[in-house]
Design a protein around this nucleic acid. Structure first.
Lengths: 65, 65
DNA sequence: ACTTTTTGTAAATTATACTTGACATTTTAT
DNA sequence: ATAAAATGTCAAGTATAATTTACAAAAAGT
C-alpha cells in the first residue's frame, strides 16, 4: 500500500524524490518504490529517510505492515 | 552494534531466539544476527519483531543506525 | 502553447538480506 | 557432573532490495 505519510513528510520539506534520494544515498527509483508501497526497504534506509525528513520510524513506517 | 533493547524486550517476554524467530517467520540465525548487530534487517521484519514483543519501531530500532 | 521538472514504470544487473545445515560454546536445569 | 536447552558462528545457497539506464506521462513554470 502507498506510504502517504512519507509522501506528505517529503512535501512538507519541499523535497523532490530525487533530492530525498540523494540525502539518503539511494536511487530515485528506490524512494519512488517505497512511496508507491509494495516494497520492503531495510531499516537503515528507513532511518536515513526519517532523519532527512525530521521524523521518527513510528511516524513514517509504523502500522502499515 | 548490539541491539540490547531487542534482547531485553525478548527476555521480558521469556522467549528464546528460536521462539521469536518462529513468531516472525524467519530463521533463528536471523534473529541472532539482528541482536548481535552489524546487520540491516528489512522494515517488515522489524515490524514483525515489534508486534511479537509488543513494542514499537521507535522503542526497538530507532537511533542505533 | 511550449519547456522543464517531477513522477511512474520497466528490464537487466549487482548487492545483500535471509535460509539451510552444521558444529562449538555457553547457559540452565537436574 | 551430566544432560538439555540456548546461543554464537560459519559457509554455501536462494530470495529480494537496490542500482543503472531508459523512456513516457504528469505536473509546474514561463
Amino acid at each position: 500500500m502507498k506510504n502517504l505519510r512519507l509522501k506528505s513528510a517529503r512535501a512538507a520539506k519541499d523535497l523532490s524524490q530525487e533530492e530525498l534520494a540523494k540525502l539518503c544515498n539511494v536511487s530515485r527509483q528506490t524512494i519512488n518504490a517505497i512511496e508507491k508501497g509494495d516494497y520492503n526497504p531495510t531499516i537503515n534506509l528507513c532511518i536515513a529517510i526519517c532523519k532527512a525528513l525530521d521524523r521518527t520510524l513510528d511516524e513514517l513506517f509504523w502500522d502499515e505492515g
